[in-house]
Amino acid sequence: MSFTHWHGDMEAQYIYTAGIAGERFFRELKDNGKLVGTRCPKCDITYVPPRMYCEKCFAELDEWKDVPLEGEVVAHTEVHVDIEDNKLAEPFVIGFVRIDGTQGGLVHYIKAPEVRNGMKVKAVLKDDRVGSILDIEHFAP
């Protein structure tokens, strides 16, 4: 026996604002191929992605810092299924890379023959950049 259902979907589109801190992050990435963060001098925390306020002391932050493209793998996973739960032909690795000299980092794809936590990796940038997290192709040793 099948029961009566009504199919519904939701029309919802958004334009998410990068904001004061995000604007600068994505412009630097796009125009200069650089990563930047903000620093809280009081807490000695460098935020990547940058934030215009400190999570710890709630101060407004205006100290900008160039940070390297290099970092260390802190957590990673090998993904075997797509968003519809179908098995992927090629599993891929995604992880969190702590950017050197900062308390932050980026979640991104990691490409290496064998990925280990603690491994040193570097952001590989695309040549044609548009101001998106996908301007970084992946991290690699």
Binding site: Y14, Y16, A18, G22, P49, V74, A75, H76, T77, E78, V79, V81, D82, I83, D85, F92, I94, G95, F96, L106, V107, H108, Y109, N117, S132, I133, L134
Partner: peptide, 24 residues
Amino acid sequence: PIYNRPLAGHPYYVAGMEMNAFLN
């Protein structure tokens, strides 16, 4: 929406990453 969502994929990867970091 800006830093994470463009990477797409099955969202449970976050649990895989956390499990990896926790066990390690």
